[in-house]
Each structure stands twice: as C-alpha cells, then as structure tokens.
Design a protein around this nucleic acid. Structure first.
Lengths: 123, 123
DNA sequence: ACTAGTGTTCTATTTCTCTATTACACTATT
DNA sequence: AATAGTGTAATAGAGAAATAGAACACTAGT
C-alpha cells in the first residue's frame, strides 16, 4: 500500500478500508482479514491497524467480535450515509482548493473535464 | 490561520503563501513580511515558517536576500507554471478520490455542479 | 483440556514535527 | 560606530505517530 507521508498512516488505512466498503469489495456482513493479516497486507504495525479499526468501530461501520473477527456492518443505511458524507467532504475540499487558486466555477469544471478526457484517451 | 492537524503546519504555511502568490495578493517582486512577523501572523514558530520558506526558495518561487527580506520571484513564468502544477495536482487528487468512491465521470461532474449551485444560492 | 486463531491492551523505543531560545550574518539608517 | 531589522542556523525539549514485542481475553475446533 502506498502512503502519503504527510498524513498519518492509521488515517490512510481507515480511508482505504472505507473505500473498499463503498466500492463493494467488502460486502455488508463480510469478515475483514485479521488485524495481524491486515498489518502484513499494508506493511504496518498491528497497533496502527487497530487504531484505524477502533475509529471505524466507534463510527459504527465495523462490528468487532472478540475472538471471531471484524465485520462490515449489516446496516446498509450506515454505508450509504458514509458514502454521502465522504463525497461531500471530497467535493467541498476540492472546490475550496481550486477556488483558492483563483479559478472560477466554470474554470474548475473545465479543468476537471479536461482531466477526464485526457485520462479517458490513455486508458 | 486555521490548521488541519493531519497535515504538517510548515506544509500548510507553504500552500497558503503559494495561494497568495497565485491569487495576486502577493505580486511578483513584492517583499513578504519578515519571518518573525509571519510567525506571529500564523501563530507558529520562526523555524516552522523558515522551513516552509526554505522549500519555496528551493523551488525558485521565493528569492531570499539576507538582511533585506524574502521576495516573490520576478519570473512570472515560474508563477504560471506553479499554478498549472497545483491545479493539475488538485484535480487529479480530487478525481481519484471520488473515483475510489465508485462515482462515474458523470456522477463526479454532477456532484460538483450540485455543490456549486448550492454554494451559489447561499452566498 | 488443549491449541490455534481471533481482538485488545500495555510498555518501551524511535522518528518526526513543532516549539523555545540563542546566536550568528548581513543590510540600512542614524 | 552603533543600532535595529532582516535571514539563517543550532540546540534542547515536548508531543504525536509508528514500531516492536509481550501479554491478556475470547472463540472454535480437535
């Protein structure tokens, strides 16, 4: 796993697992790899993984069952809400950043469209 | 100045000054406040400000003159290039994040447009 | 009962960021 | 010359993040 050294690893692990849940790579009710296996997967320490999981457990997205494992919540509403929340955060963040670079709404949209067409042609 | 505790302060100071240069709040050739004044302005330590400045000096955006002060480069090409670079980074980052949330290109554009219209109505 | 596989917690250590403080180097003004 | 205002650098210390390692609590299969 690739880490941005400007952001805490535990936070990036959390974001990554959230993405897998939203993408459907991890289904509702599905068991996650064990904390020790996750630590190996992302080349981090068990404690660091545990910290990421703790926050997701506190948020109600992950159900922890001692001795059994960690499971994605069965409550699909929570997952939908999470997705909405993350989208809103990302869109707001991106808009504010680009606005701070003196781009108008139209220029922001055009920059994004331009990026998409370029990306579309490559793949 | 508002700091995101997930990102190093020196890095946020750097980004903030870059934005001021691109916005034109800081003009080419213009003298920046002294490092000690900047430290007071953002409520950070002189060393932290100096670290941010060092990276901008290394990037050629700021010219440092010992005993005189720090100045925005006169080379407007460098500023234009910086703006292009920052825009590309932000657009790419935003796209990848939203793509990782399972949004199609069209959905990404719609989310952004929706955000813009909502924001437009409030202000 | 035993064992292996889970989550959980604790301590010690390292690294990085940030702060505080001091000192040094240079410029301009008086 | 003296002084004030600049950038620059070095040291020491506090705090957070991450690591390594060990131990504890619970579950399931044998």
């Amino acid at each position: 796993m690739h880490f941005d050294d400007k952001i805490p690893i535990y936070y990036q692990i959390k974001t990554n697992i959230y993405h897998e849940i939203i993408m459907g790579t991890l289904q509702p009710g599905e068991k996650l790899p064990s904390v020790r296996q996750l630590a190996l997967d992302v080349t981090a320490n068990v404690n660091t993984v545990q910290r990421a999981l703790s926050e997701m457990i506190a948020a109600g997205i992950i159900d922890s069952k001692r001795g059994k494992g960690n499971f994605v919540t069965m409550d699909e509403t929570k997952i939908t809400d999470l997705k909405t929340q993350l989208i809103t955060e990302q869109v707001a963040r991106a808009y504010q950043q680009l606005h701070a670079l003196n781009l108008s709404d139209e220029e922001i949209l055009n920059s994004l469209k331009h990026y998409m067409t370029q990306r579309g042609n490559v793949e």
